[in-house]
Nucleic acid binder design. Structure first.
Lengths: 168, 168
DNA sequence: AGCAATTAGTTTGAACTCAAACCTTATCGC
DNA sequence: GCGATAAGGTTTGAGTTCAAACTAATTGCT
């Protein structure tokens, strides 16, 4: 149960030394793929996303909704566009997301007084309550990640942020 | 251009100290969200994915196809299920993915001789050629990630793999 | 051998996402 | 002011993805 992974870091898998990191149950050789940061990023994100969804999924509020509601809580009156930028989602994704949250009674949308194009967003009481509950799950979930990352967390987060910021 | 991010790590954002990490252009406060590993994982993956797609996207071969073709190249004769497990995609996702690659003439599928349920997969010559080209782009792309991660790469990859593996 | 449980692959339905086109409203330059 | 340009939101279309239901074939158990 102690990770085959980190064992190999030395030898550059040039594609000829097969059978390197296969899972416990004889599976495919990932070859050079396992050296790509991008690929491993996807795998990790994928697993994390799914685990979060499992923990909170019954309510149908998955990571995307969670992130949106967090931003809404901390920035009451924000507009859809700004929300989209904050959570890195296209505005055309944000529209139906908010329609859903509004339909569930978790979010209120009123026209902005200063700009007739835009909508200002706030969580309802129910939204705040739902978010509090959600935060409990999210914390538990992220605690698992914290446990894996251990004291490397600060550096790990810094690298993730750097990737997110520098790939403009 | 030197990351506002890591600056705040000390104070636990309990939701009352607003305006902490907003981007250069007065934007939303991410609040507690920025402390979540899961959220930052998504942002980084997102940006990386999109950058890859931009570099190779004209050909329509995005990261998903790239990963599949890499596994195919290193594991000729593999079955769809095994491929799916290798790249962490559901078998119902793999089916249309391969139909597309086959339609493009990059992959051959023949019935397995030993198991009449399964299909064995191999890259065609065109597939190998396309992949070689793709690898060039992928390497350039991952080099950018390498540059960002620097000498922390080994540890960074180890953490990503640990996350992917331990969240079963 | 024979029946149950598993596995390979496909199909279908729902969710999420982006990009592009579009309308409305603001802002900028002159 | 006025026209061009930009920005906020919505709609539409296409691409990915998973999960569940289903068929066909294989394995396991007795």
């Amino acid at each position: 149960m102690d990770q085959v992974a980190t064992k190999r870091s030395g030898r550059a898998s040039n594609g000829r030394d097969r059978r390197t990191r296969k899972a416990a149950t004889s599976e495919a050789d990932l070859g050079a793929l396992q050296g790509f940061i991008g690929f491993n990023l996807r795998l990790a994100q994928d697993v994390s996303f799914r685990a979060f969804a499992r923990q909170t999924g019954q309510r149908g509020l998955r990571p995307g909704r969670f992130a949106a509601m967090m931003v809404l809580r901390d920035n009451p009156g924000i507009t859809q566009s700004a929300l989209g930028r904050a959570i890195a989602r296209d505005k055309s994704t944000v529209t139906p997301l908010l329609q859903d949250l509004q339909r569930r009674g978790l979010v209120k949308r009123h026209p902005s007084r200063t700009d007739r194009r835009s909508v200002t967003l706030t969580l309802t009481e129910a939204g705040e309550a739902a978010l509090r509950e959600l935060v409990r799950h999210a914390r538990a979930h992220d605690q698992r990640l914290d446990d894996i990352v251990g004291d490397a967390k600060a550096g790990f987060l810094a690298l993730l942020r750097r990737i997110a910021d520098d790939f403009g």
